[in-house]
């Protein structure tokens, strides 16, 4: 069964004309915590190019858009300033290409994706396990302690944090850098969430 993906906030901008969808999204985003995801629903087709342009210029992460009839559902993740700090880098890293190489050699890898469920739904590595960073503490027991875990996020920052957390608890982990933002290996989407 496909799990229903929920954003931290759903913002209804249906029926609103430009510039209101973006004006309201900006306002709502200001109130969100860094890393949280908003789902903005609009009927103005122009909102697609505008939300993408706005996200790029503000540093927020445009995750993707779902189409449901006339409704466009845009998912955006608020920029996280904490993530940008690269203090305490976790020592064991592997680059995207090496992981792709192992996957091509049919190696059976345990890939842990610590991005938000919506980000995961839009694009992820086939077979990857999804546990968002925020749930990692409580769901750590779902992971097998002896197996090597390759941890990935969008840019390598959240996964760095996850690696340090897991390694303190005795897990064997490697951080995949730079992560999904540069990933050109195989991907898939969760059933009902095609882009």
């Amino acid at each position: 069964m496909v799990k229903q993906i929920t954003a931290n906030q759903v913002l209804d901008c249906k029926g609103l004309a430009c510039p209101m969808p973006i004006v309201r999204t900006k306002k709502a985003m200001d109130a969100l915590k860094p890393g949280e995801v908003i789902e903005m629903q609009a009927t103005d087709k122009g909102s697609l190019a505008d939300i993408q342009g706005w996200a790029i210029n503000t540093g927020h992460h445009y995750i993707g858009t779902l189409y449901e009839g006339e409704i466009l559902k845009h998912f955006i993740r608020k920029a996280s300033t904490d993530e940008e700090k690269e203090d305490h880098p976790y020592a064991r890293t592997i680059d995207n290409q090496s992981v792709i190489g192992m996957l091509e050699a049919k190696a059976k890898l345990l890939i842990l994706d610590v991005r938000e469920p919506v980000e995961f739904a839009f694009i992820h590595i086939p077979g990857a396990v999804s546990i968002p960073l925020g749930d990692l503490d409580s769901r750590m027991n779902e992971l097998v302690p002896d197996e090597e875990i390759y941890v990935i996020c969008r840019t390598g920052k959240r996964s760095n944090y996850a690696c340090r957390l897991l390694s303190e608890k005795g897990y064997r982990v490697t951080n995949v850098i730079p992560g999904m933002s540069q990933w050109n290996g195989p991907t898939e989407q969760t059933g009902q969430y095609p882009i």
Partner: peptide, 12 residues
């Protein structure tokens, strides 16, 4: 006609 482009979402 002289024109410049600044997207409205950069002027919020």
């Amino acid at each position: 006609v002289e024109s410049v482009n600044i997207p409205y979402f950069d002027l919020l």
